[in-house]
């Protein structure tokens, strides 16, 4: 069944958000969010604190139910957590009582995968994120960067169609953060998947994303979607390029609320 659907929908978007809105009690967080995300596309979402970026991500994951509109992943509405969707959390979200191996293997364990297979798969991704040798360490024995490597490995073990990143590097120091951004890009190019990356760091959003979604307003909605036509693979030299700096500045102005003419040529406005 899956193969037929796959050939049929080769060009169909992985994620379709149509008219999605979310209320907390009487407070509308965001509304009217329309967005298509293609297969193996990386979408960055930026916006000021409290604009509902994280809530939108939780709607994508099925942890929250949207009050308006519909979230489709692979053509099917997301009604609850799904096997094909994995999330990386801002505060790493590791269980303090599990070792790196136990944490990384968690997603497979709750799926009933046999123990020996869990160990092999977990080991593979532990190696991929550069945590080899620390399999038996507990989270409290690891630095923040290493903890998030484990969080990323855990999400990757379940071979997700959609990888949701909730400000994953937000609580790391600047150097670790930069290091992990490029490692994430490397990992993605080896294991491409659709990724929605929520951040409030504009540079990060531009560096990672194929498109950058800017959310604004109260209640917020998508203000602009900025194309990032920078070539891949992206590396530290990408940041130095004039084009990158131009796009970064353009997004920065949008987020900071600097009004510009719609016909601005720095990037395409979708």
């Amino acid at each position: 069944m899956a193969t037929i659907n796959d050939t049929e929908k080769a060009d169909a978007p992985r994620i379709v958000l149509s008219g999605v809105g979310k209320w907390f009690d009487d407070l509308c967080v965001f509304q009217g969010v329309d967005l298509d995300v293609g297969k193996n596309e990386i979408i960055s979402i930026v916006g000021p604190s409290g604009c509902g970026k994280t809530s939108l991500l939780r709607c994508l994951n099925g942890l929250l139910k949207p009050d308006q509109g519909q979230v489709l992943v692979d053509g099917e509405p997301v009604l609850g957590p799904r096997k094909s969707i994995a999330m990386v959390f801002q505060d790493f979200g590791l269980f303090p009582w599990k070792t790196v191996l136990g944490n990384v293997g968690y997603g497979l364990k709750v799926r009933g995968v046999p123990k020996s297979e869990i160990r092999d798969v977990a080991q593979h991704f532990i190696k991929l994120v550069g945590l080899e040798g620390r399999e038996h360490a507990y989270p409290f024995q690891l630095s923040g960067g290493m903890q998030q490597r484990a969080g990323l490995a855990r999400a990757l073990t379940v071979n997700p169609n959609v990888l949701l990143m909730d400000e994953p590097f937000g609580s790391l120091d600047a150097q670790t953060r930069e290091l992990l951004q490029f490692e994430l890009l490397n990992i993605w190019s080896e294991n491409p998947t659709t990724m929605v990356f929520v951040t409030h760091a504009i540079e990060e959003a531009v560096l990672l994303g194929d498109r950058v979604v800017v959310m604004m307003g109260r209640p917020s909605s998508i203000r602009t979607i900025v194309d990032v036509p920078l070539p891949r693979p992206r590396d530290p030299s990408t940041i130095a390029s004039a084009e990158f700096q131009q796009i970064r500045h353009y997004v920065w102005e949008l987020v900071m609320g600097v009004e510009r003419g719609r016909s601005d040529g720095a990037a395409h406005v979708g």
Binding site: L63, P81, R82, A86, G93, F95, W97, G107, V110
Partner: peptide, 24 residues
């Protein structure tokens, strides 16, 4: 937090009780 993580990976109730509620 822990419940949300478990939820996001689709953990069943028995996983939550033994795997999370007891150690936590």
């Amino acid at each position: 937090r822990y419940l949300e993580i478990a939820d996001s990976f689709g953990a069943q109730r028995r996983h939550v009780w033994l795997g999370i509620a007891v150690p936590a």
